[in-house]
């Protein structure tokens, strides 16, 4: 039983910005280019766009619909919809969220170090990758990681999300403008064409089962799907809110930022003679070089890493809020202690990731490649099978200016789960470890 009131979004703009804030973060700027670079280049975009339509947008309508109709987070939503042992399955999104916090806050820690580095200028000098190498998987990464966890805990514990959301209203558009400016600059660099070819002209021989699996996990992760945050967001929606149009806005808006990040990064990668398969450090190695090449790069740099940091922080706050709510609902703890407890667990899980690249990779793979699609699958089964496809569609259509036709029912009920299952099975059969 929910022991605290569910606030509802006061304005549509507030809701849109909050959803974009949840959906836009490090996954667009840091993870998307990494995945594209390491998993097929332009070929990755094919399953990515397919999954955006088949899984992503539909998934948002499912999870918001589930959250709104059941008026609660994962446990209440799964159980309320009638999913067997829903209260227990609803714990899965919380576990995933804590794992995500553990690695995500490490990236946020890198961003914070880079923010300081752009202010001092240290991040924009030296050999390519030197500044990144000075923090990533070095002992000092633990410090930056802990700072971001503590900051997130403070914000959630003292309920100052409002302040964060208000700054997000400035930071998100700023990040968006900056990425666009950087993209325009990047494509004009000498050597950029090779990067554009890599990013846009698919080599179909690279489209392996593994690429499909990673693309699925990326599209689910970047949209905050997986039975957790988006279900909670849905529970804050009013019946007069337009789920369908909002889902399109958030889903494509999220894609816009990721695509623009690719336009900023890949031409620069090739212009500066770096490898697109560099892995998780790709954005942090290429973006400083790009900024250095821009007139006024120091200023752009500060603005970029400041807005990136805020984008990441709004996401960690959203994630931690979801888990904290779960702790409060189940254990009836005080908010402060619940947040501190969640932060402590995330810290314990994340510190090894600060210094060990293998562990870092494993935690990302377990949470985003394997567990997240499963949790998304359960949310869909709960809404479409347990609650009922017809009722689900009727609910989603409430408040919507576009009526989803009957096609949505078999799509959400059969195709959506089937796609997830098939891709996961392919992953298992191919023995993919990410």
């Amino acid at each position: 039983m929910e022991i605290h009131e569910r606030p509802k979004w006061r304005t549509k703009t507030g809701f849109i910005l909050a959803s974009m804030g949840c959906a836009v973060g490090l996954a667009n700027i840091w993870m998307f280019p990494w995945r594209v670079g390491q998993y097929g280049g332009a070929a990755f975009l094919i399953p990515y766009f397919i999954f955006l339509l088949v899984i992503g947008i539909i998934g948002i309508t499912i999870e918001w619909g589930l959250g709104r109709s059941q008026d609660g987070g994962p446990q209440r939503a799964f159980a309320g919809a009638g999913f067997p042992a829903g209260k227990w399955w609803g714990i899965l999104p919380y576990i995933i969220a804590v794992l995500v916090l553990a690695f995500y806050s490490n990236i946020l820690g890198w961003s914070l170090k880079f923010l300081v580095g752009t202010i001092t200028g240290a991040a924009l000098t030296g050999e390519p990758g030197q500044f990144f190498g000075s923090v990533a998987f070095q002992p000092e990464a633990i410090m930056w990681f802990c700072i971001t966890i503590v900051l997130t805990v403070l914000i959630v514990a003292f309920g100052v999300q409002k302040g964060i959301e208000m700054s997000a209203k400035v930071m998100m558009p700023l990040l968006f403008v900056l990425i666009t400016v950087m993209a325009i600059w990047s494509v004009t660099l000498p050597g950029a064409l090779e990067g554009l070819k890599f990013y846009l002209i698919p080599d179909l021989s690279k489209l392996t089962g593994e690429v499909w699996l990673i693309a699925l996990s990326q599209s689910i992760f970047t949209l905050s799907l997986g039975g957790g945050a988006m279900v909670v967001y849905g529970s804050y929606m009013r019946k007069s809110d337009d789920i369908t149009i909002s889902a399109i806005s958030v889903g494509f808006g999220n894609t816009v930022i990721a695509i623009m990040a690719g336009f900023a990064i890949f031409p620069a990668i090739f212009a500066f003679g770096l490898s697109p398969e560099a892995g998780p450090g790709l954005a942090f190695v290429s973006i400083p070089l790009l900024l250095q090449s821009m007139p006024g790069g120091a200023v752009w740099g500060v603005m970029f890493f400041l807005s990136l940091f805020f984008a990441g922080l709004t996401s960690t706050v959203a994630i931690m809020e979801v888990v904290t709510d779960g702790v409060i609902d189940n254990l009836h703890w005080d908010r402060k202690w619940a947040a501190i407890c969640v932060g402590a667990i995330a810290m314990a899980l994340g510190i090894p990731a600060s210094i060990n690249p293998g562990y870092f990779d494993t935690i990302i793979t377990i949470s985003t490649v394997w567990m997240l699609p499963i949790a998304g699958l359960i949310a869909a089964l709960a809404f479409l099978w347990s609650y009922g496809a017809k009722k689900a569609r009727e609910h989603v259509n409430m408040g919507s200016s576009i009526t989803l036709g009957k096609w949505w029912e078999p799509w959400a009920k059969y195709i959506y789960p089937l796609v997830i299952i098939v891709v996961l099975v392919i992953g298992i059969v191919l023995g993919i470890s990410g």
Binding site: L193, L200, I245, S246, I248, G253
Partner: peptide, 30 residues
Amino acid sequence: MAAVIVIAVVVLAVSWGPFIWATVKLMKSE
């Protein structure tokens, strides 16, 4: 070069188009 431009335009249109359409529609209905 031409292929790059064509694909770039398509990718940008496919991502920006629905985003702008949906966001404008949402703002108008407020």
